[in-house]
């Protein structure tokens, strides 16, 4: 076992290094004093932890605003997607109905549709709807594009909750609503939470639509705000950019690391199969 572990870690080590490398770069750049940014040759060490970088960055890059925008868009689109997905996933896992096969095919197809191919049409649609340059345009599109994933994931979890529990509740005297609320829901909440968090992360990280729909910097979400700090600029304040990147990614990365085993389970259950 020890020998095997060493061997495996040895084989994995190049990959591990390459994965962790950008985190290291992010970290040392974010904390380093500005003067040490362009020393040549660059070094991994630096003279002091310059916490002030974060405070400066917060103001200069309008980080708070972008954070709020990202939160608004991600929370609302996730809530919308979940509200629409939960009944659909329940119907898929519990009922036979005409057109079920066609509907599942449609879901698979929308799961494959990427925003980029449709982005021009989407933009024109939002112009027509008068939603361009509003965060709600992102809420709608993120919800629509996330739904295929959330429905698929939810229905594969719902299918593991035995139907006869609900049937037993009906026989015990519960109506449909009561059996949903008191028997099904308590058992489904963990799966819903996990699915919602993955949907949230997807929205949090989205770039193309946010770049396209939002024209004024007040409405930028975090990825676009950070991108705007490096795109087409003469002078890039890399320590601010890295500080912002770190703040924007670290919480998500931690939550994700904690949840990734659910994703594997979801796949084994048939999210992909």
């Amino acid at each position: 076992m020890l020998k095997k572990s060493l061997l495996f870690w040895l084989i994995l080590s190049p990959l591990v290094v390459v994965i962790l490398f950008p985190f290291g770069v992010m970290f040392v750049t974010a904390f380093r004093p500005r003067e040490e940014l362009f020393t040549y040759p660059p070094t991994w060490t630096f003279s002091e932890f310059r916490w002030a970088n974060f405070a400066e960055m917060w103001v200069k890059t309008n980080f708070g605003r972008a954070l709020l925008n990202s939160l608004y868009v991600s929370v609302l689109s996730t809530v919308l997607a979940m509200i629409l997905s939960i009944p659909a996933a329940y119907a898929l896992s519990r009922y036979r109905f005409p057109g079920k096969r066609a509907y599942r095919t449609f879901l698979l197809m929308t799961q494959m549709m990427s925003p980029i191919v449709l982005v021009l049409g989407l933009f024109r649609m939002m112009v027509t709807l008068g939603l361009v340059n509003t965060l709600n345009s992102l809420v709608l599109t993120y919800a629509a594009f996330n739904m295929a994933f959330t429905i698929w994931m939810l229905q594969s979890y719902f299918s593991t909750i035995p139907r006869d529990l609900e049937e037993a509740a009906w026989i015990d005297g519960a109506g449909h609503l009561t059996s949903l609320l008191r028997v099904f829901l308590p058992l489904a909440v963990p799966a819903m939470a996990v699915t919602a968090i993955f949907g949230f992360i997807n929205s949090w990280n989205e770039f193309v639509l946010a770049l396209t729909m939002i024209r004024s910097s007040d409405g930028f979400t975090l990825p676009v705000q950070i991108y705007s700090q490096v795109a087409g600029r003469y002078q890039i304040e890399w320590h601010h950019v890295m500080a912002a990147t770190m703040l924007a990614t670290l919480p998500v990365a931690i939550v994700f690391s904690w949840l990734q085993r659910f994703l594997i389970r979801g796949m084994a259950l048939g999210a992909v199969k």
């Binding site: 994995l12 990280n205 770039f207 990825p223 950070i226 991108y227 490096v230 890399w238 950019v241 994700f256």
Partner: peptide, 26 residues
């Protein structure tokens, strides 16, 4: 190994762009 998945491609690309900078990149 799952870590890169959690981070937006935009941010990953920004960090690499800086890391790969000719003279100042680590």
């Amino acid at each position: 190994i799952m870590l890169p998945w959690s981070i937006s491609l935009t941010m990953t690309a920004v960090v690499w762009r800086w890391a790969l900078n000719g003279r100042a990149g680590l």
